[in-house]
């Protein structure tokens, strides 16, 4: 059963200068990392509607992080900002000097979120990791993770205790005086706009939001088996985030665990290169087909797939195998039509 269009409210929050607008511009508006130096501080909330595939709209609330704005979100605009949130992305600047204060603000935001949107998922990005010496990056990140987790737990616990003081909140109707267990769905990532880590975090963020993921995964698997592939990646056309992937048992032995975000990063950079070369706008489509055959080692191709997607196929070598895989991928396009809009797709293979 295919679902209709889904709208998701996504809050992007964190201190001013932490890098929220930068990330958003790179992922969804095809900025280069160095272009973000020109971004000014966001005033109040910058609302944008990002169409992702045919049937998901992200209502992105980029919330300017200057203190006055933050206080306003927590007071006057509290219900407006924190109701119906699907995802909160909270960004910490690892270089920030005032960690205590950052954490205090974070705790306040989490409290407001838990109060108004119990089901919201939380993604915490420990950002600008490029500024930390490579040898201590992992350790610095782990330390920050445990602090943030502890603070989150504390914040959630406080809201739990205070619950009865907020009769207006949605959960009261669940009855029997029992305070429901607020188990926050939270993931943390180390990120930087200067490397592929950005793509890893954002692919996880959108992954759970994409409608009909089960159908996509099943169809990719049947395609993969049919063409004898070792790996298939499906990218959204503008962001080049990995929407879904399939890997054969042989493909699972590939030791490069970071290859998905790496491919996003490479292809997005390639798109920029092409746009510079052709002089066409960055958001426009740039290439339609990219083939690479590494002699008797392996073959691969990246090709325009449906209106909203590109597909990457990594497969065993062999000229005949390659040609038939390309034909089969073209033939499989109709199975994935539903990715392009809220239309009902025909029954799949």
């Amino acid at each position: 059963q295919l679902k209709k269009v889904k709208k998701q409210k996504v809050l992007l929050m964190g201190k001013s200068g932490s890098g929220k607008s930068s990330m958003r511009s790179i992922i969804f508006s095809n900025y280069l990392a160095r272009d973000t130096r020109r971004l000014g501080a966001t005033i109040d909330i910058d609302l944008s509607h990002v169409k992702f595939l045919g049937n998901l709209t992200l209502n992105l609330w980029d919330c300017g992080g200057q203190e006055a704005f933050m206080e306003n979100y927590l007071s006057q605009q509290r219900a407006h900002v924190f109701s119906n949130v699907g995802v909160l992305i909270y960004v910490f600047d690892i270089e920030s000097r005032d960690v205590e204060r950052d954490l205090a603000t974070y705790v306040n935001i989490i409290s407001a979120l838990v109060q108004y949107s119990r089901e919201a998922k939380v993604f915490v990005l420990i950002h600008k990791m490029d500024l930390v010496h490579p040898s201590t990056r992992e350790q610095v990140f782990e330390e920050r993770v445990s602090i943030v987790r502890r603070k989150t737990a504390e914040a959630v616990a406080i809201v739990r205790k205070q619950k009865p003081e907020y009769p207006a909140s949605a959960s009261v109707s669940e009855g029997s005086g029992m305070i429901p267990d607020i188990d926050l769905d939270m993931q943390l990532f180390a990120t930087s706009i200067w490397d592929q880590s950005l793509y890893k975090a954002w692919a996880s963020i959108i992954h759970d939001l994409v409608p009909n993921l089960g159908v996509i995964e099943t169809q990719l698997a049947s395609l993969g088996v049919a063409i004898d592939a070792d790996e298939i990646l499906l990218f959204e056309r503008t962001s080049f985030l990995v929407v879904s992937k399939w890997t054969s048992p042989e493909g699972e032995t590939n030791p490069w665990g970071d290859r998905f975000e790496r491919m996003s990063n490479i292809l997005k950079a390639w798109k920029h290169t092409c746009s510079k070369f052709t002089g066409t706008p960055r958001n426009a489509e740039q290439f339609s087909d990219f083939e690479y055959k590494m002699g008797p080692n392996f073959s691969m191709f990246v090709t325009k797939f449906t209106t909203n997607t590109y597909i990457l196929v990594c497969m065993p070598p062999g000229e005949a195998r390659f040609n038939s895989a390309k034909l089969n991928v073209a033939a499989a396009r109709p199975w994935f039509k539903f990715l392009d809009g809220p239309v009902v797709a025909p029954a799949s293979a």
Partner: peptide, 29 residues
């Protein structure tokens, strides 16, 4: 991969033993 229906070594299944690649831009130029 070298078994039926191919019955050839992978080396013999490829057209070129060296790496080769081609890319088409969206405007096909």
């Amino acid at each position: 991969l070298e078994g039926p229906p191919w019955l050839q070594t992978l080396e013999n299944q490829v057209a070129c033993e060296f790496a080769e690649s081609g890319m088409v831009l969206a405007d096909a130029q």
